[in-house]
Amino acid sequence: MRTRRLSPGRILAWIYLAVILVVTVFPFYWILRTALSDNYALLGNPSSLLPVDFTWGPFARVLGLASAEESIAEGGSGATLDLGRYLVNSIVYATASTFLIVLFSLLAAYAFARLHWRGRDLVFSLFLAALMVPGILTLLPNFVLVRDLGLLNTFAGMILPYGLFSAFNIFFLRQFMLGLSAETEEAALIDGAGRVRILFGITIPMTSGPITTLSILGFIGMWNDYFWPLLVTTDESVQPLTLALAVFKQSSPQSQPDWAGLMAATLVAALPMLLLFMVFGRRIVNSIGFTGLK
């Protein structure tokens, strides 16, 4: 298949692929190019392919390193933005959510896959039903609930509603555990090991592949989450990067936004995902194909 000559059709296909790739990747370059430009200089030369009047200024502005005067001099709004704090919030939110949801899903999956108990099939089918029901209806009532619990503007309020239960994770892990041979576990049982020790000592290590997959996909989802944090947080001490960036964008002046600063902020918000991609790229690609399951 690979050694065939280049037919016109294949050339056309390569051209199509090249166009898709350029359109996909170009905006990432454009973020970088704009973020390294002087905002005033951009006005005069908006479509130069290289940074215009190269400067680190935009990054200094959004990382809270520039004074108001410096910021205004370079075309910023003068409002100081300190993305560092939001970065920490995002890391806490995404890491804690991902850790909890994967851990709790593992525990539940084990109970469904390996233990025999009354009510198992009933509870499992209820959980499965949740897989089919769209979550849209729960957003507003969950906000009211979190407010009633006094958890607005707390990490607990952000994490708990979607950090305890994931029908998809449980189903996915249970399917995998059912496929594992139970012999090692049975042997350990006969040797007198307890169930909990077997779970953490044998089953979880054998499930490391799917755990990594779900952790990566979960982390990406939580890192990029916008709507839920928007509902339950108003205080910048807990708000994630997505919110800070959205506010920064929405409050930019209509006439002359600080595009260079905005792109610097965008890059800061996207950078951890891009790093994750460089480390786990192949794994992420395979994970997406692998989870094409519902």
Partner: peptide
């Protein structure tokens, strides 16, 4: 197995009941 199973699914079950079932009904 019974008691252990309920302990293991407790977090997910609480999440399911408190943050999925209850808000769905409350939303309606």
């Amino acid at each position: 197995d019974g008691p252990l199973a309920w302990v293991l699914i407790a977090p997910a079950l609480i999440g399911f009941l408190v943050f999925a079932v209850y808000p769905t009904l409350r939303g309606i």
